[in-house]
Simulated assay, not measured.
Amino acid sequence: MLTSVAVPVIDGVTPFEFGVLFEVFAVDRSDEGVPRLDFKLCGERPGEPVRMGLGAFLVPDHDLDALHTADLVAVPAYATHDGYPPALVDAIRRARTLLSVCSGSFLLGVAGRLDGRRCTTHWRYADELAERFPAARVDPDVLFVDDGDVITGAGTAAGIDACLHVVRRELGAAVATTIARRMVVAPQRDGGQRQFIRPTSVRADSLQPTLAWMLDRLDTEHTVASLAEHARMSERTFARRFAAETGTTPHRWLTAQRVLRARQLLEETRLSVEDVARLCGFGTAALLRHHFNAVVGLPPKDYRRSFAHDHAAVEPPEA
């Protein structure tokens, strides 16, 4: 259970990546049922301003010892990829669970926390990360990588995806969806989507009506032909534009949304796994179990047992 988040800051911490961590983990949304987290800003010398650049400063109110007890240590990007304070490196080495955004992954590498692990960073720095830390298995294409107690996110907006993934993993889909709605961002982007999408002349929101239509009809069978017809495009144009705007295929996107919907139903209702499968568009419980386990890492019943809001709302045993 996630109850505390600590963020280490040093000179050169980047404003956007820090802002992502603050927005997801520090803003009080308890009025909407989001658990309030104990958020700590940590530095080598509490009370001493840390320069962000352009005349902006942060003032940490905790020392680096707070990193040792936090449930999650969330590392923003820094202007440097080296020369970190030794005390910070040691604290990262001993942290329970780590999340890095963008080039914050380099601090994890220096601390040895990427050795033998699959990880990612901003695509511009992926080659450098792989070269400096050859024991790490760097995937330069994905939005984020969840490797258990080490989660690494790619650049900029992908950091939001990584943070929301952690919230979803630790606090449930409903909490993540509430935060995403307040931030006006998509509640679910598959971590395996491509991080770098070639720019096109197409408006970024041109498929939004069709995506919304799909979300309202997750229990319906969709084909590229039917989706292209709704979007009033040829199948070839639709497939190309879908990949350009979402970074994935219609099938993978639908599967991710169906799994997300299944998580919400398992958390919030007493519906049987068979009914959840039907309402989410998987058709059969067996197909739901296959996709759910591949994405979440747990069978649906085990997920419900752990994350149901009302633990009495667990599916009754089969006769």
Rank of each mutant, 00 (worst) to 15 (best):
T177Q: 12
E44I: 12
R137P: 10
S201N: 13
F57N: 00
K301Y: 14
Y84I: 00
R236I: 15
A285W: 08
P140Y: 05
S201Y: 14
D38G: 09
Y303S: 00
A135P: 12
I160A: 00
V24R: 07
H309D: 11
V50H: 09
Q264E: 15
R51F: 14
L129T: 01
A79F: 07
E318R: 14
T80K: 12
A286C: 10
H165L: 04
A157N: 09
E170C: 14
F282C: 08
A130L: 03
R240F: 14
L2S: 14
T237Y: 15
V27K: 08
L279T: 10
R198C: 08
A26E: 06
F144T: 08
S103P: 10
I10T: 03
Q188N: 15
S306P: 14
F106Q: 02
P209S: 05
V259G: 04
A87Q: 08
R96K: 15
R182T: 11
P299I: 04
T246M: 06
T220N: 02
P15M: 13
Y84C: 00
A308G: 02
G33S: 05
V101C: 02
W123G: 05
S272K: 01
H290L: 12
V296M: 07
G12E: 05
G47R: 00
H62E: 09
A77R: 00
E128H: 01
G247S: 05
V314Y: 05
V166I: 00
A95I: 08
R93H: 09
G281M: 00
L98I: 09
D146A: 00
T249D: 11
A174K: 12
D71L: 11
D161Q: 01
A174Q: 10
L58E: 02
A285C: 10
T246P: 13
H122N: 04
E17W: 01
A56P: 14
D65S: 12
F282H: 07
L211M: 13
G12A: 05
Y84Q: 01
T69K: 03
A225M: 11
D11Q: 05
R258H: 07
C119E: 08
E131T: 13
F18E: 04
A56C: 15
G172C: 15
T284K: 04
T246D: 01
G192S: 09
L288E: 00
P8C: 03
A157H: 11
Q193Y: 11
D127Y: 06
P49S: 04
L271W: 05
L211H: 09
E268M: 10
G116E: 05
A186M: 14
R241K: 12
V150Y: 06
A77H: 06
L114D: 01
H81T: 03
A154E: 02
T152R: 03
L21A: 07
V50M: 08
F144D: 07
V224H: 03
A256C: 12
